[in-house]
Computed example of a mutant assay.
Amino acid sequence: MTAPPADIRRLWFLDTLVLIRVSHLDGADGISVLEHRARQGDSPPLHIHRTEDEIFHVLEGRLRFRIAETERHAGAGEILLAPRRIPHTYRVESSEARFLTITGGRDFERMIRGLGRPATADALPMPAGPPTPEQARALEEACGRHDILLVGPPLG
């Protein structure tokens, strides 16, 4: 799979819509700000970023986070930090959620670009559902190429 060009800023990533608001290529510090829109139940596998802290800022909806061994709910306006090398994940608890992820490197954005595909609309991709075995393998490979380690299942 070929990554979308750097000028593509609207991607479908699995069952989510990701808008690249600030690319790591835009400034000198490598900061990346991605806006995510996801359906209820969306939950990535428990994972570790080896090179980047990840900041979550909830814009709309409600999410449940697991960071290390701690679970916490967060709603609009709340911000959480998932430090690098610490296992974390989330689950969308409301019907939909919008949130930002902010990282200080390029790995997370590159992984999203590497697995995402250009979105043809400002809508969530269809059909929705758990990843196919092929999608799960592609996710694991993309994460591995970008210093992200999958270490457990999504939140149930």
Rank of each mutant, 00 (worst) to 15 (best):
residue 60 E to D: 12
residue 32 S to F: 06
residue 66 R to M: 12
residue 54 E to I: 07
residue 105 G to D: 10
residue 71 E to W: 08
residue 15 D to A: 09
residue 36 H to M: 08
residue 75 G to C: 04
residue 12 W to N: 07
residue 102 I to A: 14
residue 33 V to Q: 15
residue 121 A to Y: 02
residue 40 Q to A: 15
residue 86 I to Y: 10
residue 117 R to W: 00
residue 38 A to C: 11
residue 48 I to M: 05
residue 136 A to G: 04
residue 32 S to D: 05
residue 88 H to V: 11
residue 115 L to F: 13
residue 75 G to I: 01
residue 154 P to R: 07
residue 59 L to Y: 06
residue 112 I to D: 05
residue 56 F to H: 00
residue 9 R to M: 02
residue 54 E to V: 08
residue 96 E to I: 03
residue 70 T to L: 11
residue 18 V to S: 09
residue 150 L to W: 00
residue 133 P to G: 10
residue 11 L to W: 09
residue 63 L to T: 04
residue 116 G to I: 02
residue 118 P to D: 04
residue 9 R to D: 06
residue 9 R to A: 04
residue 40 Q to C: 14
residue 19 L to F: 12
residue 133 P to W: 00
residue 43 S to Y: 03
residue 130 P to S: 09
residue 67 I to S: 07
residue 95 S to P: 09
residue 90 Y to A: 11
residue 83 P to L: 01
residue 122 D to Q: 00
residue 61 G to E: 05
residue 96 E to N: 05
residue 24 H to V: 01
residue 118 P to A: 08
residue 55 I to N: 07
residue 23 S to I: 00
residue 24 H to I: 01
residue 132 T to R: 10
residue 146 H to T: 00
residue 53 D to C: 13
residue 137 R to F: 02
residue 87 P to G: 10
residue 100 L to N: 02
residue 103 T to C: 14
residue 60 E to I: 02
residue 95 S to G: 03
residue 102 I to G: 15
residue 144 G to N: 07
residue 38 A to E: 08
residue 120 T to F: 10
residue 7 D to V: 13
residue 79 I to M: 02
